[in-house]
Write a protein that binds this DNA or RNA. Sequence first.
RNA 1: GGGCGCGUAGCUCAGCGGGAGAGCACUCCCUUGACAUGGGAGGGGUCACAGGUUCAAUCCCUGUCGUGCCCACCA
Length: 902
Amino acid sequence: MMDKTFEPAAIETRMRALWDEVQAFKAGRPERLGAKPYSIMIPPPNVTGSLHIGHALNNTLQDVLCRFERMRGRDVLWQPGMDHAGIATQTVVERQLQDRQEPDRRTMGREAFVERVWAWKAESGGQILDQLQRLGASCDWSRTRFTMDEGLSEAVLEAFVSLHKAGLIYRDKRLVNWDPGLGTAVSDIEVVSVEMRGSLWHFRYPIEGEPGRFITVATTRPETMLGDTAVAVHPNDERYRDLVGRHALLPLVGRRIPIVADAYSDPDKGSGAVKITPGHDFNDFEVGRRHALAVINIFDAGARLAIDGNTAFLEDAAPEDGVLALHGLDRAEARKRVVALMDERGLLEKTEPHTLMVPHGDRSNAVIEPWLTDQWYVDAAKLAGPALDAVRDGDTSFHPKSWEKTYFDWLENIQPWCVSRQLWWGHRIPAWYGPDGRTFVEKREAEARAAAEAHYGRAVDLRRDEDVLDTWFSSGLWAFSTLGWPHATPELARYYPTSTLVTGFDIIFFWVARMMMLSLFVTGETPFKDVYIHALVRDEKGAKMSKSKGNVVDPLTLIDDHGADALRFTLAAMAAQGRDIKLSVARIEGYKGFATKLWNATRFLRMNQCRRDPTFEPGAACEVLSRWILGESSKAVAEVTGALDAFRFNDAAAAAYRFVWNVFCDWFIELAKPVLQGEASAARTETRAVAAAVLDDILKLLHPFMPFVTEAIWGYGTAGEDGEPARETVLALALWPRPAPPDRAAEAEIGWVIDLVSEVRSFRSEMSIGSQPLALSLVGATPAARARAEAHRPMIESLARLSRFDFVDGAPAAAAQLVVRDTIAAIPLAGLVDATAERARLSKEKGKLDADVAKIETELGNENFLKRAKEEAIEAKRERREDALMRLGAVARALDRLASIE
RNA sequence: GGGCGCGUAGCUCAGCGGGAGAGCACUCCCUUGACAUGGGAGGGGUCACAGGUUCAAUCCCUGUCGUGCCCACCA
């Protein structure tokens, strides 16, 4: 027997053990090898990660799909795993070394440090996988992969080498986004612009050969002037026309720099003349290229001034006293000093307050410095073509479709992807350099040696590239590397391309687009058929939740407090929202109530011997109530199925909720009580079986959303009572119900009963009658109506709380009259309410009906409406008019009768 | 500067061409043997604003206002 109260925590632990025991989530179960595969690759969480609310949403939706497809009989692979998260993990371990006052990474050396990271992973990495299981994620946990494990590392090497051989990966020296905090290059999408308040300094640069004449340039970054190699003005700018081709003398540095005409310069900005620093500004770099300007790097890897002994800086320069003393200063300090020096020399024209967008590293939050270095790049523009075509041609579809525009816009304007990182934790780039700097890219050192030997004609010493790859490079291979690629495994053949990718829009660029590009290049196939993009869970201000802001809602706490099922149901029900979800705890509480409701309804059915009957055939049900609830159940099955097929998680959840609570519990169980609690009869036997059968369908419908409570109620492995057969399988592997056609006659009949009961309840409440029993008479009922009333008499008497229920020919005097479809029900007023109250009630109803009828009449009187509207629309309107008129007539007659009594 | 959203009941949000919905909150009634984590009945909305298309607009189009996000190389 079930526990009296619903305790999610206990159930969750037990069900996890059960699924584990029967290996419910294992892909490739022998009995399903003939079935169509369905596969989802989990967006691999960071190994350093712990479950946040975004993961909870993302994985709930994936789990809903996987459980749904599994119950439809598909062979489901939900591939789990983790990402090595280069920067995040290296940072965590470095911090740990610092906290424990151990030698830092440079002191311990690369090999020891990497070993240390592995040790950290073994000890405290990957807690998130257990947390996902607490959420109920039905991944095939036996297949868990890690981007740094052996197989995936091989895939990375293979992909890198073949991209290189195809000329799609190359090494280049150009400006990169340098993160001085982390000491590594990052890609452009890892840079976020932050609005900051700063100043705009106007500097005077003396014109060569014309003492006393200056050209004024405005800058937000005074310290970079040390690296200036030109001043640019617009070709059409009259003010400066005579200066083009001449030179300015860079103050403090004494460098002679040309004044060039370039359309990049905007006459309306600042002074119209702009200082050009090709070494530390992306635009200036381009200007420099057009005018063959020198590129001077004035910073070291930590963005400190590196000018002393800097040959590029010192060439053709004669730094003033004190300038070389700035060597080693941080950017911010250098800025102050440069401004002060310029001011002292009377070369600071003015300083204006200015707001500007400053690039920051998304991980480190350090100000990014454009810096000239050698890095590895992926030729993304070339890879983008097939990735664009795949979506344009519909091989891959986004849901909602509107995200395709975002995807197209980005790929159409894509820049080379910088994939090298100056870190130690990650996939080391398989490139070796010969004595002359020649590069050999091979999967293994031995192959590189062989290639080098072939090239040089002798064995030479090779030096391996120090850098590792961007974490997103290995994530980009995830769709197939997890299945064993580059080996032709049976899993690869069976589950790739995958079915659906579920992710948030914030990683369309980072991950989705790159998986598309890399998968298409490597496998020639689009990695997934459908991409479902869900909302981001944000805080109440619409900001991303983050630990540093302290605005996170911990899903594990929510699970502790309300149960995983309630959290999951809430997330699924809210999945429709556009781009923001503001999670409401009240809503979660509400859905916990839903799980409790299901629990208690089940208890009631068990108490009333509603057992599954294997011989029961739903199609052969005789009772109207049976046929009705079976029809309603079918409707719910169709709704939930259709909604899930279309990724409308919220509609699916709402349809299931409505059916279970508002139809099954509120009406079916209540209507069935007289039979269930009555004497033995064929009707009782049938009702019990029907109740059990519909409950089974309910458990199935809800299982994708609330796996724990439904599996617990399903009761696999627990003894059936009173000869009830034991379950053949766990619910997770049971088959999804198939809808049957609804029974219109039963629908009309039970609908009438429900309306009658509702009318009586409404009357009782409006008239403040309380709970005392009422006498009710059907007035002038047709034989059919009479038969119907008789058939359901026990239900009606019990739900409407009637002391008497009979039939009369004419309306009794001093009685309230209720209109129920085509029937009038009369309740004697004597001793209950006075005629005034009843007249008020009827008048109110009449008012509503009058307004309704008037509105419909107007529409039906409109010729254009009749001429142009759809047939169904007109017909529906006519039906509404008939119904309203009928009710209005009854109400009017009742009012007349009241008047005649008084 | 471009792009994409959103403005619907007190709150959080669904709906998106033909009768305005849910959860929570609120009011009233009900401890009837599944559930008071409950049951029943209610109140509450010119669906941001202004035009337009249509027989018909919360829903489609245009604009305005408010609000949020993404992208962008501006001194």
